[in-house]
């Protein structure tokens, strides 16, 4: 019985890492494509950040599952946590900056909520 468990756990751990890595890879490539295909700065940014963070997150998670040691898992959770905090802030900042410096919006944008709200403080 335990022999089965060991092979299963080995296969499971290996399989899981494999799956996570694949997902990570997929999302990363998506981010890159998004970056290339999107028409204007803002749409590109949101694509890149969202997909990017998720992609890298999975990759780091894969590292955690690969080494089933406690410290590694803790550290990877920390990394993912950090990424999830910093990435949105970074994109927020960039968006703000881009908007103020008058980066062109996509011609077919439906409506622009930001227009009037900010006076040039």
């Amino acid at each position: 019985m335990n022999e089965f468990i060991t092979t299963a756990s080995v296969w499971l751990n290996y399989g899981l890492t494999m799956v996570l890595v694949l997902i990570g890879g997929f999302f990363s490539i998506m981010a890159a494509v998004g970056l290339l295909r999107m028409p204007d700065v803002y749409t590109r940014m949101q694509a890149a950040t969202k997909a990017g963070t998720l992609g890298v997150g999975c990759m780091v998670l894969a590292v955690a599952t690969h080494f089933t040691r406690l410290d590694v898992i803790l550290e990877s959770i920390l990394v993912i946590g950090m990424l999830f905090i910093t990435a949105p802030i970074a994109s927020h900042l960039i968006a703000r900056a881009a908007y103020f410096t008058g980066a062109p919006l996509w011609d077919k944008t439906a409506y622009d909520e930001m227009r009037g709200c900010y006076d040039a403080d």
């Binding site: 910093t86 802030i89 900042l93 403080d121």
Partner: peptide
């Protein structure tokens, strides 16, 4: 750079 989001984040991140 007085974006509130950055400030709150920094207060936590620092």
């Amino acid at each position: 750079m007085n974006s509130i989001i950055l400030r709150t984040a920094t207060r936590f991140m620092l």
